Computed example of a mutant assay.
Amino acid sequence: MSPSAKPLSAIPGTVPALQGDHWIESLRDGTRVLIRPLRESDRGLEDAFIRQLSSEARRYRFLCDFKEPGKQLLDQLMHVDYAHDMAFVALAHDDGRLREVGISRYAASQDGLQCECAVTVADDWRHRGLAVVLMKHLIDVARKNKFTRMFSIDDSTNEPMRELAHFMGFQCESNPDDPRTVVYSLAL
Rank of each mutant, 00 (worst) to 15 (best):
R97H: 14
V89T: 13
R149V: 12
T14V: 09
R99S: 10
R99W: 04
R59W: 07
V15H: 14
F167E: 10
P7C: 10
D111C: 12
A57I: 01
S156F: 02
Y60M: 12
L164K: 01
L77E: 00
G129E: 06
H127I: 07
D94I: 13
D65K: 09
N158M: 06
D111T: 08
A83N: 10
R58L: 03
L38H: 03
T14N: 14
D29V: 09
M78T: 04
K136I: 04
D111H: 10
P7Q: 04
A107G: 11
S104T: 02
E163I: 14
L164E: 05
M168T: 01
T148F: 06
H84K: 14
V132H: 10
R99T: 14
E68R: 09
A90G: 10
N158P: 04
A122S: 15
E25V: 13
Q19W: 11
S9Q: 13
A165G: 08
V119T: 11
H93G: 12
A17F: 07
H22I: 08
N158S: 05
R105K: 04
S41L: 06
R36D: 06
F151T: 00
A83V: 15
I35T: 06
P3Y: 04
H22A: 14
R105D: 04
A57D: 02
R61K: 01
P176L: 05
C172H: 01
I35D: 02
L130N: 07
P37L: 09
R149C: 12
D81M: 01
G20V: 12
R126A: 08
C115R: 00
I153M: 04
Y82A: 09
A142C: 03
D155Q: 01
G44D: 08
R32C: 13
L34P: 07
D94G: 05
P12C: 08
P12Q: 12
L164H: 03
R36T: 09
R43W: 00
A142L: 01
D47W: 04
F49L: 07
Q114G: 08
A108L: 06
L73A: 02
M78L: 03
R59G: 01
P3W: 02
S41D: 13
Q52P: 03
L27S: 09
A83D: 13
Q72W: 00
V80D: 07
V33E: 06
E100A: 14
A165S: 13
T148N: 13
R28F: 12
E159L: 14
P176I: 02
E116H: 00
R32K: 12
L45F: 06
E173K: 11
V33D: 05
L45N: 03
P160L: 05
D94S: 11
L63P: 06
D94M: 11
A122C: 04
R61W: 05
Y184K: 05
K146D: 15
G30C: 08
A92C: 08
A122R: 06
A17S: 14
S174V: 05
H166Y: 10
R162N: 11
Q110G: 12
A83F: 12
N145K: 15
P176C: 04
P176M: 03
D178C: 07
V132E: 15
P7F: 08
T120Y: 01
P179G: 09
